[in-house]
C-alpha cells in the first residue's frame, strides 16, 4: 500500500512500535507485523462483522474487537495477550463449543484457553457458530439467498421464510467459507444439493470437468449451457490471442 506519509499513524502493539496507514483495522495491522490474533467470524475476503468476539484485544486497557477497530490516531497502545484477554476468549470459546463441540479448531482453542463446554448449554449442537460468514459470502457473490433469521438463541442461517432459498445459485460460496463445515451440501458427478435445493451441474464442453451450476454460470454472465471451465477458457483465450496477426511469431533471420 502506498499511503501518503501524512495518513500514517503509529503506536505500539505488544510494546513494539509500528506504523500503519490511518484507519487500518487493528487485526490487519497486527498480522502485517507478525502478531497473530485468533479469529472465527473474520474472513479476509469478506467485510468484518465483529460478532464472534474471539479477536478481542486490549486497546489502552479496554477490550476491543480487533477485526473492526480502526487505528485512527497516533499513540495507540495495543496488547494482544493478557489474562483479561485470555479470560474473554475462554468465555467465547466455551460458549461457541456448545454449538460445535467437535470442531477441531474450537477444540484447539479450548485447549489453548483451558476451557470446556458447559453442559447446561447442551442440546443445540448443530455445528453452526452463527458467525454469518456464509451470509456475507452469499451477499458478496451477488445472491443474498441466505440470512441470519430469528433472534437471540433461536437465530440461525436460513432462506427467506425458512424455505429453500429461491435465489440460491448453488455456488457453494457459503460452504467454502464456513469455519466449522456446518453448511452441508451433497455432490455427485451431475448434481449438487444445498439448502434443500437440487442443482444440475454443467460440464465443460471441452474437457468434461464440472464447471458449476447453470444458475451460478448465468449469475456470472456466462452461458449456462456450455461455459468452459476456467482452464479451458484460459487456453481458448490464449489460442485466440496467438491467432491474431500481430501476434504471429516474427520470422527469424
Amino acid at each position: 500500500m502506498s499511503a501518503p506519509i501524512e495518513t500514517m499513524v503509529s503506536g505500539t502493539i505488544n510494546g513494539r512500535t509500528v506504523a500503519v496507514a490511518k484507519d487500518t483495522p487493528l487485526l490487519q495491522a497486527a498480522r502485517d507485523n507478525g502478531v497473530g490474533i485468533p479469529t472465527l467470524c473474520h474472513h479476509p475476503a469478506l467485510p468484518p462483522d465483529g460478532n464472534c468476539r474471539l479477536c478481542l484485544v486490549e486497546v489502552g486497557g479496554k477490550l476491543a474487537a480487533s477485526c473492526l477497530y480502526p487505528l485512527r490516531e497516533d499513540g495507540f497502545s495495543v496488547v494482544t495477550e493478557s489474562g483479561k484477554i485470555a479470560g474473554a476468549r475462554a468465555f467465547v470459546v466455551k460458549l461457541l463449543l456448545s454449538r460445535a463441540p467437535e470442531d477441531e479448531c474450537l477444540l484447539r482453542l479450548a485447549a489453548l484457553y483451558q476451557t470446556a463446554p458447559d453442559p447446561r448449554l447442551a442440546g443445540d449442537e448443530d455445528g453452526c457458530l452463527r458467525c454469518g460468514r456464509c451470509v456475507r459470502a452469499c451477499h458478496a457473490a451477488g445472491s443474498d439467498a441466505v440470512a441470519l433469521v430469528g433472534r437471540g438463541r433461536s437465530r440461525k442461517v436460513a432462506g427467506a421464510f425458512l424455505e429453500p432459498p429461491a435465489d440460491c445459485a448453488g455456488c457453494l460460496a457459503c460452504a467454502r467459507v464456513c469455519p466449522t463445515g456446518a453448511v452441508k451440501f451433497r455432490e455427485t458427478k451431475n448434481s449438487r444439493s444445498i439448502w434443500g435445493k437440487e442443482f444440475s451441474l454443467a460440464p465443460c464442453p471441452v474437457c468434461g470437468r464440472t464447471v458449476g451450476t447453470p444458475e451460478e454460470l448465468a449469475r456470472a454472465g456466462l452461458d449456462p449451457g456450455g461455459a468452459l471451465c476456467p482452464e479451458c477458457r484460459r487456453r481458448a483465450m490464449a489460442g485466440a490471442l496467438l491467432a491474431l496477426p500481430e501476434n504471429a511469431a516474427p520470422k527469424r533471420g
Binding site: 465483529g50 460478532n51 464472534c52 468476539r53 468465555f91 467465547v92 460458549l95 461457541l96 456448545s98 454449538r99 448449554l121 457458530l129 452463527r130 441470519l148 430469528g150 433472534r151 437471540g152 438463541r153 433461536s154 437465530r155
Partner: peptide, 8 residues
C-alpha cells in the same frame, strides 16, 4: 443474537 457472548 448477533454476538456470541450475549446470545449464548
Amino acid at each position: 443474537g448477533k454476538c456470541a457472548p450475549c446470545r449464548e
